[in-house]
Write a protein that binds this DNA or RNA. Structure first.
Length: 469
DNA sequence: GATCAGGAATTAC
DNA sequence: GTAATTCCTGATC
């Protein structure tokens, strides 16, 4: 894939006037090589950015922001306007599942004083009044007409410089090598996510591969078949490590906990806005996600889609990744104490779970909703969230509580004793009963979280909007 | 008898 | 301060 080159601004002259300098401007290199019959560097590098190149996502124009986010250590970070002394400077975005391969800017620093001109030959590139290249933004257009030059160069010197230039070109136009390596993480991540054992191992719902606007590299050279089982294990680890790294970086940037269950309302908003912005998704009114992390975790994919029809799936998938990273972290911590943990038991398939099963039943709900191995789940959960949690698992709790009218948020408690007992277990309130639980539900009438149904029915309640979403 | 409705005090965070 | 719990009385199904 040819690497496009949004060119950075030109640097001011730094060498002395009398100093013999090597022309290194990409435009100059290209023209010179073409003049000498040498092979040109990749053509797209010498033109304005193609129109299909997407502009960068609307991150804050704070380079430190990106550096904090993409603190990959071994990878250079973009530095379009700094580092004046290096010529040319090529910086690549680090590989990340968040990076779109369609937009991989390469910043090239130019030294205007090193320009080389040839009689009768005018560079097609705009030049500043001082003779340096007009600087480009990532997607700016040419700004000025092309002036002529009256400087002449001895052809022998030109040939000598050409040799130097060839070396320079070989050193600095080796992007194909990098291009091959950069998307490998995407290929591996795709393969890992396509591998259903990933989801089975972590007891997760399937994660959509279309991670928002993130475009995975098409596996042109390799089919997934090359990744045989032993390799999958390593791939799986890489994918998980990558996800965890991304989670950690985002935590650092946003200043939030890696555990979504610990998020405050503002944390949730920050995460939602960040994710929407990160994947260049349509913005969503923040009121739709005015909830804490526990509530967010309790949302189903359908809930996400109802709140954000265009971005819901991506948000849900991202949250699943966060859960997975958290789950994996917990599993690692757990294995420190229990070398041979038994695999998570399969979810109950019947509704007639006995009381003895309610511990695991409750834990199963918490694990599936919270994404982690917590026996009793978080006690920092609201009753309405808990009820929605139960309602979201009809295969487990369908005999205790079920939707009557999902779209209008109407549900019925079929087994008041059991629901109350589950609630009491979750909140560590052994004396909980339905009388108390229903009293709490009635408190929601005044708060606008629930309302009485139009036709009063026993054990039937209704969520208010947007809590019914 | 179970549930609903709501007041009031208390507890937990 | 807020949410939930606890206890209570009275009404309804």
């Amino acid at each position: 894939m040819p690497q496009t080159v949004p060119r950075s601004g030109c640097s001011p002259p730094s060498a002395s006037q009398g100093e013999r300098a090597v022309p290194t401007s990409p435009a100059d290199i290209h023209h010179l090589l073409r003049l000498l019959g040498a092979e040109s560097p990749p053509e797209p590098m010498l033109h304005s950015p193609p129109t299909h190149i997407k502009p960068p996502p609307p991150y804050p124009e704070d380079n430190n922001y990106l550096e904090r986010l993409y603190d990959f250590g071994d990878y250079p970070t973009p530095s379009p306007s700094s580092d004046e002394g290096s010529i040319p400077t090529v910086a690549f975005h680090p590989p990340s599942p968040y990076n779109s391969l369609e937009y991989s800017p390469v910043f090239i620093k130019e030294e205007p004083h090193n320009r080389l001109t040839v009689p009768g030959f005018a560079s097609p590139y705009p030049l500043s009044p001082s003779g340096s290249c007009v600087s480009y933004g990532s997607h700016n257009q040419y700004l000025s007409p092309v002036p002529q030059h009256d400087e002449y160069i001895d052809i022998e010197d030109l040939l000598k410089e050409n040799q130097i230039l060839q070396e320079s070109v070989q050193q600095h136009y080796i992007t194909p090598k990098i291009e091959i390596e950069e998307p490998r993480d995407h290929i591996l991540l795709r393969s890992a996510l396509e591998d259903t054992t990933f989801q089975k191992r972590l007891n997760l719902r399937p994660i959509p591969l279309e991670l928002g606007s993130v475009k995975m590299e098409e596996s042109s050279g390799g089919t997934g078949e090359e990744l045989v089982t032993p390799v999958i294990e390593r791939v799986l680890s890489m994918a998980i490590e990558q996800s965890k790294r991304d989670v950690d970086n985002t935590c650092t940037v946003l200043g939030i906990s890696p555990d979504p269950m610990q998020w405050s309302t503002s944390d949730v908003k920050a995460w939602v806005m960040f994710t929407l912005q990160h994947f260049n998704l349509a913005m969503v009114p923040t009121e739709y996600f005015a909830m804490d992390g526990a509530a967010l975790v309790a949302l189903t994919e359908e809930d996400f889609n109802q709140r954000a029809p265009q971005a819901g799936s991506t948000l849900y998938a991202q949250l699943e990744i966060w859960k997975a990273a958290r789950h994996e972290s917990w599993r690692s911590q757990w294995t420190e104490h229990e070398p041979s943990p038994t695999p998570a038991p399969p979810l109950p398939s019947t509704d007639d779970l006995s009381d003895a099963d309610e511990d695991s039943e409750s834990a199963g709900t918490s694990a599936s909703q919270g994404g982690g191995k917590v026996k009793s789940g978080s006690t920092h959960i609201h009753l309405w969230q808990f009820l929605k949690e139960l309602l979201a698992s009809p295969h487990i709790h369908g005999s205790a509580i079920r939707w009557l009218d999902r779209s209008n948020g109407i549900f019925k408690i079929e087994d008041s004793v059991r629901v109350a007992r589950l609630w009491g277990k979750r909140k560590n309130r052994p004396a909980m009963n339905y009388d108390k639980l229903s009293r709490s539900i009635r408190q929601y009438y005044k708060k606008g979280i629930m309302k009485k149904t139009e036709r009063s029915q026993r054990l039937v309640y209704q969520f208010c909007h947007p809590y019914c979403l």
